[in-house]
Amino acid sequence: MSKKAVKDILDGMTKDDLVAWIRNQHFYQPKLSDVLYIRWQRQSAEVLEEMQKENRALDGVDFKERDRLAVRFNETKNAAEKLRLLELMQPYNKAMQDHIKRSQALDRKSKRVDALYEQIDVARQKERSF
C-alpha cells in the first residue's frame, strides 16, 4: 500500500475514529512523550514556515527611499515640508512597526514550542522511572 493511500485513510478518519483505533491497538499505546514530540514537530514546522513568510514580508518595501526622505526631513527647516515628508515616510514606518510586532509574536510562539520540547524530556524521564 502506498504512503499516499495510508495518509488518505488517516485524513478521512474523525478524531473519535482515531482515538478508538489507537485504543484498540493493544500492542502499542502511545506514551506522553510520543504525543508531545508529534505536537512539537508539527508546531515547529508551523513556526518555521511563519518565520520564513515574515522574513519575506518586507521584500517589496524600499527602505532606501524612506532613508532618503528622512535625510530630506533632517535637512529642511520648512515646517510644511517636514510634515509632507513625515506623511510620505509613514507607510514605511508602519510596515516596519507591523513587521516588528509580528516578529515579536513569532518569538513568543517559538518560545512556547521550545518549552514543549522541554516537556518531552520531562515526560521521557518519568516514563523511564516506571
Rank of each mutant, 00 (worst) to 15 (best):
M1A: 14
K3H: 15
K3C: 11
K3Q: 11
A5K: 12
K7V: 14
D8I: 00
I9S: 03
I9L: 14
L10H: 08
L10K: 07
D11A: 08
G12D: 04
G12V: 04
T14A: 02
K15M: 12
K15W: 14
D16H: 09
V19W: 05
A20N: 10
I22N: 05
Q25N: 13
F27T: 14
Q29Y: 14
P30C: 02
L32P: 03
V35L: 06
V35R: 00
R39V: 15
R39W: 09
R39F: 12
R39H: 15
L48P: 01
E49D: 09
K53G: 13
N55R: 12
N55H: 12
R56I: 02
L58Q: 05
G60A: 03
V61W: 00
E65W: 01
D67G: 03
D67K: 09
D67I: 04
A70P: 01
V71Q: 11
V71K: 13
V71H: 09
F73I: 02
K77I: 09
K77H: 09
N78R: 00
N78I: 00
A79S: 07
A80V: 05
E81T: 10
E81G: 05
K82P: 01
K82A: 03
L86I: 07
Y92E: 02
N93L: 12
N93P: 04
K94H: 09
A95K: 08
A95R: 07
M96L: 14
H99C: 02
K101H: 05
R102E: 15
S103C: 07
A105C: 02
A105Y: 02
L106S: 09
R108E: 15
K111Q: 15
K111V: 07
R112Y: 08
V113Y: 02
D114P: 00
A115M: 06
A115L: 05
A115I: 01
A115P: 01
A115T: 03
L116K: 00
L116Y: 00
L116D: 01
Y117S: 10
D121P: 01
V122P: 05
A123S: 06
R124S: 04
R124L: 13
K126D: 13
S129N: 13
